[in-house]
Design a protein around this nucleic acid. Structure first.
Lengths: 120, 120
DNA sequence: GAAATCTGGTTACATATAGTAATCAACAGT
DNA sequence: ACTGTTGATTACTATATGTAACCAGATTTC
């Protein structure tokens, strides 16, 4: 299976819904944020990525990256064996999520506001 | 708080991230699908909505609708007391998620394909 | 060369969300 | 009286996420 192949997903019922299948892949708390940071910053190591994502723990980041790798949205490359270094980056499929992520960011900027800025 | 007020959300750390906060509201398995169906079909009753969403159970739909109501994305209106009927609909804030949902649908159409159609 | 620090994680445990299946009360229709 | 529809809830199981501590290997600092 090449990088540009479509990912087969089964969906129960008569009608196949692209929103449902997309949501099963990225409809989780941290997945969009991870993709967003990799879009912004390019390839990052594990700790660098963790520092970029405020509020995530190394355990949850590790689990989420496993999911995203399995979904072929993120690539994990071993950059160096000694010392051991890795780089997480987006696949083409992952980069194509830019429109989704940007729409989420725009919605957030319009409809949400940090608690600090409330009532200024 | 009126319907058009911004929803205050706290986010740990120095930088506030609109993607993170948006993802905490809709970054779940069924939330985007529910919003999608209400965008497509307009206001629906509980069972009608359940029928529109293939694979969801009444329990999970009920829980998800509670979340979406609390997030001020969905309104629950009691249409009739006798017989008892309700209508779930999107708030203005919820309708504004259209760009996000449409981007998800487009990504899904491009990168995913139902298992049936594989290798035709 | 011993100690501190950085990298890329794992482990054990607790809580939250999602899935399965059955059930329910209040009607309405026949 | 019986069947079906509406709008759910309940009990239970299974994943997902959160918290905190910890770890080995390598490098840097003294």
């Amino acid at each position: 299976m090449s990088d540009t192949d479509e990912l087969a997903v089964w969906c129960a019922g008569d009608e196949w819904c692209p929103v449902t299948t997309t949501a099963t892949l990225i409809g989780r708390k941290w997945h969009p944020v991870i993709v967003h940071r990799l879009l912004e910053k390019g390839p990052l190591g594990f700790n660098a990525l963790e520092s970029e994502i405020d509020g995530i723990s190394s355990k949850v980041l590790s689990d989420s990256l496993d999911d995203l790798e399995e979904a072929k949205l993120v690539d994990r490359e071993i950059v160096s064996e000694k010392p051991f270094r890795v780089a997480y980056s987006l696949t083409e499929r992952g980069e194509d999520l830019e429109d989704v992520i940007e729409a989420m960011a725009e919605w957030g900027r319009t409809h949400l506001v940090p608690a600090d800025e409330e009532g200024i």
